[in-house]
Amino acid sequence: MARTKSGFLLAAALIALAGCTKTPPPDVPGPGPDNGTVVDNGGGDTIRPGSAEDFKRSVMSDTVHFAYDQYDLDAQARAILDTQAQWLLRYPSVRVTIEGHCDERGTREYNLALGDRRANAAKNYLAARGVAPGRITTISYGKERPLALSSDEASWAQNRRAVTIVIS
């Protein structure tokens, strides 16, 4: 116990010592500020925190994808939604819509239902991460709004998706 304590003190001291070296500490990006200070990315554009653009830049992706005829979230999807949840928790007043989409290899009405399942799968995951469900509306577009236009597996995989869109 005493050894850990002294070890801790030693570590703290050494860390404090680090400030005395001649080399300047590397620039460590910290968490974004909660208030309205502007983050200058050096390119000259300004993005308001809590905005849709901020969302898109901040999260891993605004879109998760699904396997054919499925609506369960794989590890990649969960990772993406985790970053979305983080951001949403940071901006509690922001509301989003999650759109559920399908590929063209399903019939029209079933795809409306499947798109709704996908949107709700993403919504439920975010809610489980602490995002208040009242902030999230869902809408299904079935197969009506594909992203990729070819009739092949690559395009279909892109079209099976749930997209989170900041609406305020």
Binding site: Y71, L112, A113, D116, R117, A119, N120, A121, N124
Partner: peptide, 8 residues
């Protein structure tokens, strides 16, 4: 058909 909370 009606979809409520992901169930149709």
């Amino acid at each position: 058909s009606m979809a409520i909370a992901g169930n149709t």
